[in-house]
Design a protein around this nucleic acid. Structure first.
Length: 266
DNA sequence: ACTCAGGTATCCT
DNA sequence: AGGATACCTGAG
């Protein structure tokens, strides 16, 4: 299916933003994402045109929401002003969007993410999907459900390189399995309440909870503070970052800073 | 071989 | 409340 861009939408920027771990580059103009038990290939035909290997029906049902196409990211990007550093971050992150990803998958993914490099996170998640997720096709596996994780032995799960996070993941699977309606309960909470509720899970502190809220629950005002963001803030916002200016889109600003600052400094 | 990674829990003061 | 420390393992 052909899609004509009407807003910021850059595959490389999204793939390298750190918000997704199964959205990967195949070559300069071709990317693949595995999400919601489906595989999607996205080809950049030209700067304004994408070719997606899905039906119009699937696009409307799944991918439109996944790519958050009802949110105007270019206007958020263009709202950045009065700060040279922030303006540069926004400019370098043109094309950034915040995906609507699966909440359960984001919960487990960001529990895995702690104290790991992004390549290592991707390796662990991929192994976990191959180990106990549904097979989609020859090379792609869906993210496992809570019960699929619970039915897999600790020895097998350990082979995914989860380390000390294994018990956190099993405990989260337990929670999601024993409370099937947990997502509808969490969705109703305010941002503050959601953060507190997520932090009740083992292995979920401020940073991981913020990531789950921002990238899973699409609460665009969360501003996860990782090592890169903290470095950027201490270098460029010595008097503190003003979270009023860009509310309720601080999460988008966080993505601009993370992507631009990390690319510039690694 | 060796450090560090998109942190958190726990144990201190 | 705030600071120090251990923690599994892979990637560079």
């Amino acid at each position: 299916m052909i899609y004509k861009k009407t807003d910021d939408f850059d595959l490389k920027t999204i793939a390298e933003s750190g918000q997704c771990f199964r959205f990967n580059r195949i070559d300069d103009s071709l990317y693949k994402t595995v999400a919601f038990d489906r595989v999607l290939h996205i080809k950049e035909v030209d700067s304004k045109t994408l070719d997606l290997d899905c039906s119009k029906k699937d696009f409307d049902k799944v991918w439109h929401r996944y790519f958050d196409l009802d949110t105007d990211y270019s206007s958020i990007r263009r709202s950045v002003k009065n700060n040279a550093f922030l303006c540069e971050c926004a400019e370098r992150s043109e094309g950034m969007r915040i995906l609507n990803q699966d909440k359960w998958e984001m919960t487990i993914s960001f529990i895995i993410s702690q104290r790991k490099s992004i390549p290592a996170i991707k390796t662990s998640i991929e192994r976990l999907c191959r180990l106990c997720g549904d097979r989609i096709d020859d090379e792609n596996y869906a993210f496992p459900t809570p019960s699929q994780i619970l039915l897999t032995s600790s020895d097998k799960l350990s082979e995914c390189g989860l380390g000390y996070r294994l018990s956190y993941i099993q405990s989260a699977a337990d929670l999601f399995y024993s409370e099937p309606d947990i997502l509808s309960r969490l969705e109703k909470l305010s941002d503050d309440e959601l953060l507190e509720e997520l932090k009740k899970m083992q292995g979920v502190g401020d940073k991981v909870a913020s990531c789950i809220a921002l990238f899973g629950f699409h609460r665009l005002n969360f501003f996860p503070k990782d090592v890169w963001i903290n470095r950027a803030l201490s270098e460029h916002f010595k008097d503190g970052f003003d979270f009023d200016t860009y509310a309720p889109f601080n999460g988008v600003i966080q993505q601009y800073i993370f992507y631009a600052f990390r690319n510039a400094n690694r």
